[in-house]
Simulated assay, not measured.
Amino acid sequence: MDVHGGARVRLFGLELPELLVPGHPSGEPAPSYAPRLTARVAQVAAAAGTHPRLLRGLAAGPEGEVLWVAEEAVPGVPLELLAAAGPLPPYRVAEIGADLAAALRSVHEDGLTHGNLTLRTVLVCEDGAAMLGGLLLGAAEEELCAALGGEVPRRVYETRALMLGPLAERWAIDAGAPADTWALGVLLYRLLTGHGPYPETDLPTLLAAVRDGHHHPADGCGPLRPLVERLLRPGAAARPDAAAVQRELRVLLASAPEPGLAGPAEPPLPVARPAAGPLVPRQRGRRAARAAAGAVADRQGPDRQGAQRPPRIPPRLLGPLLLGGVLLLLVAGLAGIVAVAG
């Protein structure tokens, strides 16, 4: 990162191929695409407003055969890095999607199309907020494709194919704001499932699937499935705009379960739990023996307790105790007679 006017910036380099002009005198500097691309980037930067979820594009300028595009930088992690670990939880994806929809809404209200919404252009900040960048770089790439292709659509397609590759987010059928919301649907699907909704092995296969609306099933999208399927519809009129997407995701987040409630009801114990019976604190000595015996008796029930409980008086003492009791009764009787006879 460099410092530009006191702000931390990220620099992106776009290679500029040499412009071949028939009949151009040899030995003289060849014309360059740099002025055209620089003018286009400056136009987009001037038209774009500010938004808390939109990384601000700063400037662009050529240096040799490279056009450098400067963009605001904030502390965070690229979304591409987070997605590499596997699918993200649905409600976390909803939070990211709501932030990106808000950024796209701002771009569209300024009369612009973003055209560069991918995992590489989203930054997740330290507080969890998602920031959308890549606006100026996307404008420079599209302008370069148009300059190289000229008035021949086939050449424009071939240039975009070489520059962008089979990345579904960059190949919407239509243009303008509906292309951005379609790309948002592709991105949400990718975050939820770990792969894109269309085959991306080669560009012709990808474009055929996009044109026909044949995407992979959205079973893994959870509560976001209805929204994702509407965003991936081939017809632009059938898709919600960025403002509607933002509202729908906010409603979904308002009903999200509290963190931790979706997990297991009981945390795993560090040791194996007994097959039956409560966990009791360990005790020592005779007290432990009495407590253990009482716990066993409680589990066996009242009937079995009476049947198996040991007698309180040992059998060998029953005879002496009985004889002693009779003698006490006799003594007590004689004492009573003497007292009455007086």
Rank of each mutant, 00 (worst) to 15 (best):
M1D: 13
V3S: 14
H4A: 13
G6L: 09
G6P: 04
G6N: 08
V9C: 13
E15D: 12
P22D: 11
P22L: 05
P25E: 09
R36W: 02
T38A: 10
A39P: 03
R40Q: 11
A46L: 08
A48T: 14
A48F: 08
G49I: 05
P52C: 07
P52V: 04
W68Q: 12
A70M: 08
A85T: 08
P87I: 02
P89D: 06
R92P: 00
A102N: 08
V107G: 05
H108P: 06
E109T: 09
D110G: 13
G111R: 05
G115C: 02
T118M: 10
T118G: 10
V122Q: 09
L123M: 14
C125Y: 01
E126D: 14
G128E: 10
L144M: 05
L148M: 13
G149K: 07
P153R: 03
R154H: 04
R155M: 10
R155H: 10
A161W: 04
R170L: 15
A179E: 07
W182A: 02
A183K: 07
L184N: 08
L188Q: 04
R190W: 15
P197A: 04
E200N: 08
T201P: 00
L206C: 12
H214Q: 15
C221Y: 05
P223Q: 12
R225V: 00
L227E: 10
R230C: 09
G235E: 15
A237K: 01
D241L: 06
A243T: 03
A244T: 09
A244I: 01
A244E: 15
R247S: 10
R247K: 04
E248N: 02
R250A: 14
V251G: 10
V251L: 15
S255N: 04
P257R: 13
A262F: 06
A262E: 15
A265Y: 08
P270H: 11
A276C: 06
P278H: 08
A289D: 12
R290I: 10
A291F: 08
D298F: 02
Q300P: 00
R304I: 00
G306R: 15
A307C: 06
P310D: 01
R312Y: 03
P314E: 08
G319R: 12
L323N: 02
G325I: 00
L327N: 01
L328Y: 07
G336S: 09
A339C: 09
A341Q: 15
